[in-house]
Design a protein around this nucleic acid. Structure first.
Length: 270
DNA sequence: GTTCTCGGCCG
DNA sequence: CGGCCGAGAAC
């Protein structure tokens, strides 16, 4: 009579890794269970530290739950380090969303917020009330969103989304992953229209011409058809299909979000 | 010898 | 209470 001795595939680990749960059948701890993992070569692992030692940097186990075998983003919050908070919460926009984005990262080992001085007794710069509330942002700060994933309320890590081919990245990191993070963040941070980088100069030399209030993507066009497709995709929560490639002809609307952003706790940050 | 299993420590 | 690992039992 073989109890649950199946070696199950473990999707959170690289292909070939198996997980096994063994119920203790006697002794004081009868009924408890032990969890083991098997590498593709068959080596047995019986603790998370042991697993981490073996995998090294190849897999980030920070949010890996050894017992369940799943990625649990809440594990990240373990850090007793104070949450750097609310540099963005003062800004207008979508206050109901619990999203704290990374603040400026400097060459120093400490992450330091910065304040823009817009008026000072010894200078004659006029206060621009519109700019005064705006937080200075680090150029290409979106790069640091790389590797971070969103999760739903059950803490399942969501599948990533495909982006329309018509969306193109700008800047030093052209990966789709960062592009998606940049756009999603832009939608959360402000109710202002998302246009992408409308200046073509930004594409040629983003370090100089980048509009930091817009995400790191080229300007794009959204058609009526794209909007219809996007709304249809909303019904299909399982296979959330990507919005279609923006067309360049026909009646066009700018400034429409391409996706209904998944109703999640959005991005969890380290 | 290796593998399996439960005890028990420690956080 | 649960994760981790030691060590005796089983093979």
């Amino acid at each position: 009579m073989i109890m649950e001795r199946k070696r199950m595939d473990c999707p959170a680990l690289p292909p070939g890794w198996k997980k096994e749960e063994v119920i203790r059948k006697s002794g004081l701890s009868a009924g408890k269970s032990d969890v083991y993992y098997y590498s593709p070569t068959g080596k047995k692992f019986r603790s998370k530290p042991q697993l981490a030692r073996y995998l090294g940097n190849t897999v980030d186990l920070a949010c890996f739950d050894f017992r369940t075998g799943k990625m649990m983003p809440s594990k990240l919050q373990k850090n007793k380090q104070r949450l750097r908070n609310d540099n963005f919460s003062l800004s207008k926009g979508k206050p109901d969303l619990n999203t704290a984005l990374p603040i400026r990262q400097t060459a120093s080992i400490f992450k330091q917020p910065v304040t823009k001085v817009v008026n000072h007794p010894s200078n004659k710069v006029k206060t621009d009330p519109q700019r005064a509330t705006e937080q200075p942002r680090q150029l290409f700060w979106e790069k640091r969103l790389k590797g971070l994933r969103s999760s739903d309320v059950t803490e399942e890590v969501l599948k990533t989304m495909e982006l329309p081919k018509g969306l193109q990245s700008v800047g030093p990191d052209m990966s789709d992953e960062t592009l998606l993070s940049a756009i999603a963040s832009a939608l959360h941070m402000s109710s202002a229209p998302i246009t992408g980088q409308t200046s073509t100069a930004a594409e040629k030399n983003p370090a100089i011409w980048l509009n930091t209030s817009q995400p790191l993507c080229k300007a794009f066009i959204v058609t009526d058809e794209d909007i219809r497709d996007s709304l249809n995709a909303e019904d299909d929560t399982e296979t959330r299909s990507p919005a279609r490639l923006p067309k360049q002809k026909g009646p066009t609307h700018r400034f429409i979000p391409l996706y209904p952003i998944a109703s999640t706790k959005a991005f969890l940050f380290h």
